[in-house]
Write a protein that binds this DNA or RNA. Structure first.
Lengths: 224, 224
DNA sequence: GACCAACCGGGGTGAGCCTCCCCGTTTCCG
DNA sequence: CGGAAACGGGGAGGCTCACCCCGGTTGGTC
């Protein structure tokens, strides 16, 4: 179910003045490493051995260290990748689907494939949450999802007491893989739960929610 | 069903013929270890260092090894503890609350405190899923939750296309803590999500669910 | 209240894993 | 086709964790 497009994410052409360009195979390997990292981290946690990531990417571990100074830098780029791909999803769904709530449903179910559940472990560690790239990716993602939700809200199909943060965190939690992943057909479960959750999002609201709606900015805040 | 008996966690008085009785402080420490293990495992994962568990329990690590031969045995008892406490909750809520769906809501929100999110990592590792004690605890839990759901279903407030497994897995996922737990007031979020999910559970169903309803037995099955 | 034994706590050790580097070889680009 | 950037695999160093041992302490019994 490769989402096709996906690409967008501006080519990694820049990278500072020091390296005028990156060799073709180097670029290819870099992409494969990030993809492998996303998969393995979402499966085994953010502290998965580098050798395992390298093995799955089909490269040597040295290549990994050549591209990323340390684990945090890799996590940083994985996070960017997930956010970017998810934003792509939101934008393309909004463009393709006429019915607003159906678009929201499609987006939520599509997020499973993007391994959005990986965001949660990633964001929690020691990454620099104030990095400009991260903030930019976040703003783009928030804008795209807010557009989806706004349309659904305007059409009267989405309850009005929730915000982007509520949706994203819930999706993240519901799609997180089980550590051992030994349960048969767990994906089927995930889509059931998402569907139930979406039913809860529909207007009219069936109950009053505790707390208050949260943006992605609210999520960035740390404990004192 | 009727498994209800359970007698709440029967005192650990037995334990084979070799040890006629356990000294009072030993019993106390054992309980504290299990409680600490539940907390730390739900927070850091099932592979949390034994020293950390011992530290939080306020005992030496040797005490831990004295009570549990290995990690798997500890996990086994933690799982039993979580199941038992959760079943207690379900039973007491059912007895106290007259409105069926309100009872279900109370149970779900109460499950957060029981760290039911710990079940998920625990069950997935290498524990013996066919152990008699585990099956008994599971049956008791399933009966208690099924009673809750059955009442809500009979009153026409709960959609009919879901089963105990659906609810338990969803609660488990939604209440799992973030690895770093560095986000402010995450508990508030959890209760929001649970509330939204519960709204999706209400009758009449707002959409058709993929897959089919699952029991706890279905969850026990492993991949080929 | 005193004895005996069960129980406890903390420090130490050995093993396993992971990170990171080094160097001969391969691949790309002009 | 030549130079250089990039690659892959193997290995050393470091770190953390599981597990054990022994002097001290606490609880139960007469």
């Amino acid at each position: 179910m490769a989402v096709g497009v996906g690409a967008t994410s501006a080519k990694t052409a820049k990278c500072g003045a020091s390296s005028p360009r990156l060799r073709a195979d180097a670029v290819r390997n870099r992409e494969r490493i990030i993809a492998a990292a996303r998969e393995t981290m979402v499966e085994f946690g953010a502290d998965v051995p580098f050798d395992e990531i390298a093995r799955r990417a089909g490269v040597g571990n040295a290549t990994l260290y050549r591209h990323f100074a340390d684990r945090l830098e890799l996590i940083h780029h994985v996070t960017l990748s997930v956010m970017s791909r998810t934003a792509d999803q939101a934008e393309s769904v909004l463009a393709e689907e006429s019915d607003a709530f159906r678009a929201l449903r499609r987006f939520v179910h599509a997020a499973v494939e993007e391994k959005i559940g990986a965001l949660c472990p990633l964001l929690s560690d020691g990454v620099d949450r104030d990095h400009p790239d991260l903030l930019a990716a976040r703003d783009r993602l928030e804008a795209a999802v807010e557009a989806l939700m706004g349309a659904a809200r305007d059409s009267g199909q989405l309850r009005t007491d929730i915000a982007v943060g509520d949706l994203m965190v819930a999706i993240t939690q519901l799609t997180r893989p089980l550590p051992g992943s030994s349960c048969v057909d767990f994906d089927k479960f995930v889509h059931r739960h998402l569907q139930l959750f979406l039913d809860g999002l529909q207007a009219p609201a069936r109950s009053e929610l505790p707390g208050c709606a949260a943006t992605l900015e609210d999520l960035r805040r740390r404990k004192p």
